[in-house]
Every structure is written in structure tokens, then in C-alpha cells.
Write a protein that binds this DNA or RNA. Structure first.
Lengths: 205, 205, 205, 205
DNA sequence: GATGAATGAGGGTTCATTCAT
DNA sequence: CATGAATGAACCCTCATTCAT
């Protein structure tokens, strides 16, 4: 009723609940996977009861979709500009550190999403859109002003974005499996993406 | 009718049961993931009753470990020699095809294994051994006679094997997510591994 | 319609559920024993679904502990005062009737509890406490004003309470096995407990 | 084939198997109760496979009946004569020691038998017969030459045997519950049975 | 909107029992 | 006779979901 934000409005309250549930879910999913996580554990970790969950999400899978969406949006909003703002010569290092340190278990999240793509009709579409957004984001990095790759053709950049995503996924998995990629390995994995002249690569084809 | 035993011995029978259960499990795991698969569905698909499973495996996770183990062993036995027998100039193409076509959902299997590495004490060790075997196998490929990489230092080859594994994992994931790597993408992803002179890679750092 | 709440509060509702489950469990345990009883049968007999059980008890054995506890508490609350209020000369008769008629299968319940005392850490303690409470109750009867045994030493009363409990258990078992003790047998079994002068007992040893 | 008993005959072999299974069953039942014991554990402890059990017993409950029968027969064959051979004045002490030390979990065995008396038609009859045999045995002790109770009427002895059985059961249960009867308690519990003149007992009735 | 008791399908696992060897 | 792989019913328990409060 009053303007002072001492008391949050109903909507803000709910927004907070939602946010906390999402944060808790990210943790729990990272630990046990989607199927291995129970709504009870998620809500308990968020400090709510079971019912709060169903006031904010229709489904367990709805939570997963929302979470993936959220993460990708945050990546586009927070991480990408940071990378783009980095001068060209340090960019690989920044990417490497980001891969090694900041990127959490999103990859596995998306794997779960893919796994359940047939559970509900909209899941497949959500996944597809997610991938597109990520690929577009990466293409954006490659095309950034100052990048030596800015002169490549659109198609060429698309292929490299694709390869970059593959490399990122691979590194994430290596980390998850207990054999994280070190700087040298990361450099090798991104070599093809970063090379200005593809002709000097591979077996000379 | 023939002299050869029409009836299989009991040990052979059981071996067959085991084999079928493993095959069925590979399918079902690929479809629903480990947590999402029920032993009922696995045994039903293999044409057995629930109990047959527990005559052959101690646990659900025992099945997963066995399956991962089996797959890696088959890789070492069947795939590796094939690759090694391929002349150097075609080798990348063979690897690419193998990655794109023959490699099934093993990657996800291993991810599940990693997820459950704390469920039972031996799981973590099994996972570690698996990774080591795969890395050793890849190093073997890189060191094969005829390979231009044979002249690299041991350490250098180890790093490349690591990167190669990361690339393989990434490609697998791309495929699983619905954005499979095509030949050009594969080439880029493996560029760093295959380059004879790492010095010409990257941004010259 | 009336002012008194037609609808029970949620806490009352749950209390009712708990009570019904306990009552049903007592019945079913009496029929099939603890191990022989299924939670399904208990909940069905109480008119609830399987899950209601797990909303009210953590475990099957939790139910057993609770039930034993409850029974002993009821004994202390309902039976003991009744006995104490009975004039001395009729007391044995009251005890006898109580033993023969009112005491249900609690004994077997406690036997089951003892059987599972290693299943969960707290079970053994619960059993011990139960026994202590029963023995204290019996000692209370023996020490009651008006009892001829009131003049005995504490230690002497303790021994007699012990013997009385043994006799009670024995009678219960006789009944369960199909050879219930009649009045004359009960009298003989309690003779040692009730004797004012132990010296005149036995074979004079 | 030969007369030398180096090799046991088939029948002897089987007899041995039976015996070992019974012994193992007694142990396992004592530990986990009838319902809580698995045939696998019994046969494993006896050093046999599951099948051996079904070559020797029709049922799990058949094993229980046989075991109870066997135990009672052994009691009549081994324990009773021993007691009867003891001079009157030491007899109570012998009984006490026997109760405290030698009598194993037979009581619980019989309780299990009673519990399952409706599972198979002959179980109830087997139980009844068991009780009769035990009671007859106890009556035999009471009537033994040299006993001061030898002069009692048959009916009087029957009642005392009944009470004695009740006391025995009670003592066993006390022991099982973790509050074993010591010598003084045993004396009190058996006081009524042993008294030569019932008139001096109880509340003067 | 949030709560949490109750639902009930389903999951992993055990185990008595069968039967081909 | 003994073996043990396979059967399949039953069990305890978990958990997504509903709904009265």
C-alpha cells in the first residue's frame, strides 16, 4: 500500500520465491541430475514447502526448462559482453578461464533437457531455441570488432561457432568426469576455431 | 541332432542372458538415461523376468559399471585396430565417420556413471580406470607407426590425447543435443590434435 | 451447523489418521507378526492409502516402537490405577482377569521389538526404556498402600516385580500358544510374588 | 557298495544334509525370526545351495515344524532324564541352570509356529502335539520318584505342570528381552509349582 | 500464495519356489 | 541328490502431484 519498499508486494514476494527455487534447483540438479533430484529436496533447500513449488511452476520439467532458459539468458547478458570487451590478444585466455572456472553444470542441465525432450511437446522446441541462442552468441564473439575472424564469411563463422560449442561442451564434460582440461589442452581444443587460416590445419586437406 | 550341443550349457545360457540384458540396458539407458530407466523395462526388452537381472547383476549401478566397462573394452578391441590399420592420410576421415556414425550414447553412459560416483565406493575407481583406458587408447592411435605425430614427445602426445577425448565428448554431445557436427566441424575440432606443428596454431601466443 | 468446528483442524485430522493407523497396525501385527505384516494391509485396514503411512511414520519399525510405547503408556495410565484402587483381598483376582482378558498381544509386539533391536540404533534403547517403565509400574502396584507387600525392602520388591513380569509374559505366551492359564494356574504362577513370607516357599532351600 | 562306512550311503548323506540344514536354521531363526530368515541364508550357513533345501523339505514352514519337533524330542530324550536323575534337593537348582543356560530360543521358535498355525492345515495340530508332549514331560518330572510332589493328585500335578511351563516361557522371554531372571527371581517364579502345601500360598484363599 | 497431509503409481530389491542341468 | 539360473509376487519406500486449509 505504501510506496516504501519495506514490504514487498505480493508479486515481488512470489518473484523472490521463484528465484530461490530456481537457485536451489540449479544446485540440486547439479548434484543429483534431474531425475535424481526430488522436489522436496529443492524446496527444502530453498526454505519452502512442497506447495510453494506448485504455486510457481506447473511441473518438474517446467522448472528445468525455465532454468535452462534463464541460464542461457544470463550467459548472453553477463558473460558475452565481458568477453567482447576483452582485447583480441587476451580473449582466448578469458574464454579459457571462463570455461575452466565460471561455467557451472549448465551443460548437464541441457543434457537432461534433451533427455526429456519427448516428455512434453514444448521441450524439444525449447532445447532447439536454446542451442540457437548459444550459437548466435558465439558467432557474435567471433564477429566482434577487433577479432581477426571478423573477416570470415558468415558460413565460415557459423561452422566455427559450431566447433566452438562442441569444444566447450567437451571441456565441460572433461571437467565433470574428473579430467579437466588445462590451458594447453584448451588451446589445442580451440585451435581450429581460432586459426585465421584454416588451410594450415589438419592433414593438409 | 548334430553332435555339437544343441542345448547350451548353463554357463553359456547365463552368458547369453547377461549379454542380452546388457544390450537391452544400453538401449533403454540411451532412451531414458540411467535414473529414468527401470529394471522392469530393461528385463522386459531383453525378454526376461525381473529376477533374471538380479541373478546376473548385484545392482542397478553394477549394470551401469559393467556396461561402461564393456563398451570401452569393445572400443579397444574393435575400433582401435581398425583405425590403426588405416593409412595416415585417410585416418582423420575414418575417425570422423566413426565419431559420427558408430559411437553410440556411451558418452552419456559415462556421464551417468560420474553422477553416481558417490553411490557406491567402487564407482569412482571404475570411472577413473575407464578414462585412463580410453586416454591410453587414444595415445596409442597418435603414436601409431605411420602417424606424423609419432615423433612427438610423450608428454605432448598425452596432451593431445586429452584434447582429442574432449573433442570426441563434445561431438557426441552436439549430436545428442540435435546439432551434430558435420565433417567440416569435426575437422576444426580436431585441428589442434592433428597439427604437426603446434606453433602455427592459434593466435600466435 | 453447530458452533463447534464440524471440520477438524488439520492437526486433529492427522492425529486421527495416526491413531487409526496405530490401531490397525496393532490388529495386523497381532495376526501376522511384525515381519509378516505389510504396510499395505495396515493402511488398507485403516482406510488410508500407502502414502498416509509415510506421512505419519518414518519407518515400519518406527510404527512398532510407537505402538509399543503407546501400549505401555496406556497400561500405566488406565490399568495401573484400576488395580491400585482395588482392595487388597480382591487384587489378585483383578490382576488375573486383566491378564486373562484385557492384555492383548503386547507381549509379542515387544518380542518383535527385541528381534529388531539391531535394525536401528534407537530400537534397543526404546526396548530398554519400555521394560523399565513396566517394571516400575509393577513395583508401584506392589508398594501400593494397603498391600501386604508394602513393608518389603526396595530390593525385595524389585525382585518380585521382576518375577511378576516374568509370570505375566509366561501367561501371555501360554494364551498365545493355545493353552491359556486358568485361575488356578495363575494363582500358582503368582504365588511367589504374592507370598508375604518368602521363607515358607519352595523346597525350603 | 563296501561295508566300510568310509563313504556314506546316499541315505546317510542326505541325513547329514538334513541335520546341517536344521542346525543352521535353528541359528538363523534365533537371529532373525522365521519371517526374517531367508532360505538362502540358512542354506549358505549350512554350506549348501538353495536346491539342497528343497530336496529335504517341502516348504519353509515344513522346516519350522520339523525343527520344533526335533527340539522337543531332544528335550524329552536328553534333558528330562538328566533332571529326573538329580536328587530332589538339588533339582530346582538344576532346573534353574538349565533354564538360564541351556534352553535356547526354542520358545521363540514355537511362537513362530503358533503365528503360522493357519498357513498350513497341519501346523496347528503340530503345535498342539508339541505342547502336550512338553506338558507330559514336565508332569513326569513332578511325578518322579523322590519328588515331594509325587503324592499330589493327577489333576493337581497337571495344573502345576501348566504353571511350570508358563514360568519357563516367562523366564525365556525375560532373557530374550534383556532382563534375564536371576536365581532369586527364578525361585519366586517357581515357588507355586514347588510348594508342597498350596494352602500357604498367595493371599490366603 | 503457501502449507503439508494424503494419494497412488512406480521403483529397486528380496525371496520362496521351480526346474533344467 | 544337489545346483543355481530364472521366475514373479510381494515388499518397503520414494516421489510427483493434488487439494483442503
Amino acid at each position: 500500500m505504501s510506496e516504501t519498499p519495506q514490504r514487498l508486494t505480493r508479486a515481488e514476494q512470489q518473484q523472490r520465491t521463484r528465484e530461490r527455487l530456481l537457485a536451489a534447483a540449479a544446485d540440486v540438479f547439479a548434484e543429483h541430475g534431474f531425475d535424481g533430484s526430488s522436489i522436496d529436496e529443492i524446496t527444502a533447500r530453498a526454505g519452502f514447502s512442497r506447495g510453494a513449488f506448485y504455486s510457481n511452476f506447473t511441473d518438474k520439467i517446467d522448472l528445468l526448462i525455465t532454468l535452462c532458459d534463464r541460464r542461457v539468458a544470463e550467459f548472453a547478458r553477463d558473460e558475452l559482453p565481458l568477453i567482447l570487451a576483452t582485447p583480441e590478444e587476451d580473449r582466448l585466455a578469458v574464454v579459457a578461464r571462463w570455461l575452466a572456472e565460471d561455467l557451472p553444470q549448465e551443460v548437464l542441465l541441457v543434457v537432461e533437457l534433451a533427455r526429456h525432450r519427448n516428455d512434453r511437446p514444448d521441450t524439444a522446441a525449447a532445447l532447439q531455441e536454446l542451442l540457437d541462442r548459444v550459437l548466435a552468441g558465439i558467432e557474435g564473439i567471433l564477429a566482434a570488432e577487433g577479432s581477426e575472424l571478423a573477416s570470415l564469411s558468415v558460413e565460415e563463422r557459423r561452422v566455427r561457432a559450431h566447433a566452438a560449442l562442441g569444444a566447450i561442451l567437451g571441456m565441460e564434460l572433461l571437467g565433470y568426469l574428473g579430467a579437466p582440461a588445462d590451458a594447453k589442452v584448451i588451446e589445442l581444443m580451440l585451435a581450429g576455431v581460432a586459426a585465421t587460416d584454416p588451410g594450415d590445419l589438419g592433414n593438409g586437406r
